[in-house]
Write a protein that binds this DNA or RNA. Structure first.
Lengths: 330, 330
DNA sequence: ATGAAAGCGCTAACAG
DNA sequence: CTGTTAGCGCTTTCAT
């Protein structure tokens, strides 16, 4: 790869002149500019990003740390983060932590050592540890998809209470009465918020969300299967379920079908996340959209303004969910 | 972030000494070594990777270029590539091209400008363009999941002919006679190879793969739906199908179910790829495994030995597929 | 065994 | 407007 020196020699100017025509910031005489540009073209010169990054302390990359790659929600986040990073000519470096605090710390370190522009943390599991990592640096860090009680750290989250409300309203509107809910771990704040929104709307319509109709698991397909088995064995008379993730919903639906139930006739199911898979089933899954694309765009945007040393007017960004009606709960 | 200079000052030695104790290559007196190590710990020093990368011309990263992120096969590749890269302390930088040649070229450039250790290209669409990109550099480039007729470029591929054979053998063994196949674009070599393997085995058992029972599309869910509609309208009497991707298989199955067909009783379906989703359906999809994990591990391994300036004994790595029997074709 | 000095490729004063 | 110089943080001769 050609370096700036090569270009300078070929154009008969100094490296600083080359640097100037590239940056475009300072004025350069037309003729010299032309010479330099031609030399650049001739040797197909592209500035070395490591040298540049070292010098200006800006690696032109953004780091994305997720606990799991092969999971539809994170795939969305990865996809959109890459998209909007690329739009700003930032490369995406992707780190998987497998929920392991040591791997998280490592990833964090590695990124900082690359003069990274900013780090996006997705679904961090251990709140205290994150605080530790973050406090050691002034590199922009932003949390997406899970709120953190920590001033200064920008949070990009969904209005999860509203999500629960949307689900409940739809079930009620379609005449369902014996309603169940399958949640992720209730240690997670957003899980409780979703549940509260769901319960409040039901209550408002005089329907109680019975304790035995709340099944707590994680956001996985397996949880959906387990929940279905649980309700079947209980001979529970539920006529509808809200699953707090589409993966849970998929697990539920297939397990119910296997047991001979018809979805949505016997039991209607609403999911959440609008993962790609939710349109690739029979029935397709009625779900609540998380506007991942908007959220990721905002994340990149925030990092960008923070990189320019500008202040952020606010540090919490809340996005609104939306219901999509499909076959599993018409 | 503390720099080497800070450590040196604190330990009362020169930067070169610090560098030496870190690299561990050269001998350093015990006492000085101790002092340096303590200083490192005290300021929590970590070498800056840009400076290091610039100096030794080794960015300690590997680049992965895919045409699409939100696709189960690529998710697998991303996942495993990250895993084995991380094991060697290499960061993964992920680039999405959307099958756009210009974006591909850009991604390629950006990576090279980062003194990247190696580039993994997945499912490149335009062969000629890739050759162009590759010939301009001596950075290791390896192609995964699609063969390229280009000496010097290591290829990591599946034995696709064998995959077709496995599918055919299973359908025949389970007594199916009126057999169909849904393929990706037959411009792609691996598609033709799969088809050949499939056809050859059928022929060997005296079963013809009729032309009207071959449906050509792409590897998508939509193709599966279209194919199902095609066979239904034709009132075709097929009793089994091999879909060249699980996504196609999923499209087929749901579309057939919607039309009242039972899978596998009426029509049995084999897919390919073993995507996560294939176990999350009812019925679960019988499929052909691509050993993505092994393939990605090999990719990293190849880049690693090429980075060490060692020669490669061979440049083509062929992996063997495996049949997994599940519900859709017992 | 250790330090001084050069240089990776770039940017940013500072002169002129 | 342009060239010279210093320096980002590191590794690697080259001396000692």
């Amino acid at each position: 790869m050609a370096s700036m020196k090569d270009v300078a020699r070929l154009a008969g100017v100094s490296v600083s002149t080359v640097s100037r025509v590239i940056s475009g910031a300072m004025r350069v005489e037309e003729p010299t500019k032309k010479k330099v540009e031609e030399a650049i073209r001739k040797v197909n010169y592209k500035p070395n990003l490591l040298a540049q990054g070292l010098r200006i302390k800006n690696g032109k990359m953004i780091g994305l740390i997720v606990p799991e790659i092969n999971h539809p929600s994170f795939v969305n986040i990865i996809n959109y983060t890459e998209k909007y990073a690329a739009e700003k000519s930032l490369n995406l470096v992707l780190c998987n932590t497998y929920n392991d605090p040591e791997k998280s710390a490592n990833a964090f370190d590695q990124l900082l050592r690359r003069n990274i522009n900013g780090i996006i943390l997705s679904r961090v599991s251990d709140e205290s540890q994150v605080k530790n990592l973050i406090s050691n640096t002034n590199t922009p860090v932003i949390i997406i998809d899970r709120a953190l009680d920590h001033e200064d750290v920008p949070n990009i989250i969904l209005n999860n209470y509203k999500a629960g409300q949307l689900a409940a309203e739809h079930l009620i509107k379609s005449g369902r009465k014996r309603i169940a809910c399958i949640t992720g771990s209730q240690k997670i704040r957003l899980v409780r918020e979703r549940l509260n929104g769901f319960r409040d709307i039901l209550q408002k319509h005089g329907i109680a969300l019975e304790h035995k109709n709340i099944f707590e698991g994680d956001f996985s397909f397996k949880t959906g299967e387990q929940a279905a088995r649980f309700f079947l064995e209980l001979n529970s008379e539920i006529d509808s379920v809200w699953a707090q993730s589409d993966l849970i919903a998929a697990g539920l639906i297939t397990a119910f079908q296997r047991a001979g139930k018809n979805i949505p006739e016997d039991i209607s199911v609403i999911g959440m996340d609008n993962i790609t898979q939710s349109t690739m089933m029979y029935p397709t899954i009625t779900t609540i959209i998380q506007p991942y694309e908007d959220m990721c765009r905002k994340a990149i945007e925030v990092i960008d303004t923070l990189t320019e040393d500008e202040k952020l007017e606010k540090t919490n960004f809340i996005f609104e969910p939306e219901l999509i009606v499909r076959e599993s709960a018409p």
